[in-house]
């Protein structure tokens, strides 16, 4: 059941990234906010389950994006691995920490996605429009990171509790 919930959430995040919505940020709208979902998996889900969903989201994004195939997958796995270490040393349920780590994750993601483009020489440097887009995305992630990840966590806890109650009743 929890896997179904996570699959639904993963699909929701992917759709939210790709479907054309009335954007409320200047420029080209929101960045790829799957980084928040990856953070949720890294902080609050078991490693195997989290890794499986990270791979699924990464492959889905690679299929839908014009970037080199595997780029999103590698970036998400990198984020998952790095941020997976945080719960060992830090209180990951803290609102401030979630906000800061969300902003950092989006920044790292944007940097990692930009690397192959810049390395290939297609762009001499990041133009101001892209810098502004990245700044707004990082800011947005910082603002919505805590409520989004907390909502994902609360949802999974409710699903787990509901599942447990059903088993007990049965």
């Amino acid at each position: 059941m929890i896997a179904l919930y996570q699959a639904a959430m993963a699909l929701l995040f992917i759709l939210a990234s790709f479907v054309r919505l009335p954007f409320f940020l200047p420029g080209r709208g929101l960045a790829d906010m799957n980084a928040l979902f990856v953070l949720y998996l890294a902080y609050f889900r078991p490693v195997r389950q989290g890794a499986a969903f990270v791979c699924a989201v990464g492959i889905a994004m690679d299929s839908l994006s014009a970037g080199p195939f595997g780029l999103h997958l590698v970036v998400y796995l990198f984020l998952f691995t790095v941020f997976r270490l945080a719960p060992r040393y830090l209180q990951v349920k803290n609102a401030l920490f979630l906000a800061a780590s969300s902003a950092l994750a989006v920044l790292v993601e944007e940097g990692a996605l930009a690397f192959p483009v810049l390395a290939a020489g297609a762009e001499p440097a990041a133009p101001p429009e892209l810098a502004r887009h990245i700044f707004m995305s990082v800011l947005f992630a910082g603002v919505v990171g805590w409520p989004v990840i907390s909502a994902l966590r609360a949802g999974s806890e409710k699903v787990s509790a509901w599942r447990t109650a059903r088993r007990t009743t049965a």
């Binding site: 790709f18 054309r20 014009a66 483009v117």
Partner: peptide
């Protein structure tokens, strides 16, 4: 009909 757009700032594509 265009039904989707790459959210990344680095790659410009539509579905």
């Amino acid at each position: 009909r265009v039904v989707g757009e790459d959210p990344s700032a680095w790659f410009r594509s539509v579905v």
